[in-house]
Amino acid sequence: MGRAAVVRLLHALGVIAVVVTLTFALARLLPGDPFASIADHPSVDAAWRARLRTTYGFDEPLLAQFVRWCGAVLRGDLGYSFSAQRPVRELLAHALPWTLLLSSVALTVGGVLGIALGSGQAVRRGGWADRLTGSTTLVLASIPDVVVATAVLVLFGQRLRWFPIGGATGLDGGGAGDVARHLVLPAATLALLVAVTLARFHRAAMVRGADADYLLAARASGLSRWRIFWRHALPNAIAPTLTVIGVLLPILLTGTIFVEKVFAWPGMGSVLANAVLARDYHVVTAVALLSTTAVVVASAAIDALLAWLDPRTRAR
């Protein structure tokens, strides 16, 4: 067990190293530089921006830059963001908590709702409730996310004015109630989208398992429908669902770009999108570092959970 954990850890570090190195290189190969945002002025020309590149070491060979960057990261320095005008660490310290809050609420609510809906559909398979839920989730899953999010914002924010339009805190706010009011729309939208996806996967997994011989046997032995569901059907269907959740988990750290953009949520998704467009290399690489760590941890956690749920897979 101990040895397996060490192997897993080494693999994880390997994945992180590969992704970060690739991101570092690829981001710098994109055309443009971090100083594009200050170029709409006749006094600012390409020669001046070239001077800035030299000043901040973006002209050095890629390898030299990478070595310097690695050294800095090991000392805990993630570099400087030229688009946000502050050290990357400070920028992430502002953005990360907001994304963690939004994503954890949305994933929890959406996850529970999705599994409940999918299970309910599977238990009452073929009934009107199954069909109604099925068509609703199908339609919702087919509408582009941005349209759903914008429609929610327009209706509840701009028209009804029940909730503030965008942002995470009000002007003189910052208290729990204020944050909650700002959180409702983006979290509900994201939760809805997660729930819709999960419900559809989970129903499929449950239904496929439902014809299994052991369930037939259980039914024949006179066990109650709900007991069969809790004891047999759900645990067997949960593996693929957990895998889907595992794929969704990294948004805990990197957020979802479109929800954050539409609701002007000051989180990591917006940070990443802005940084890529502004060629803010240090930020892009730092976000890749964080998100890879998140993916690796999530993947390990899901594997461990699956193994724990089903001892037979561990045997292999």
Partner: peptide
Amino acid sequence: IDACLAFPRLVL
């Protein structure tokens, strides 16, 4: 797969 999932798609 982990590495691919973690790679920022926008950059790609």
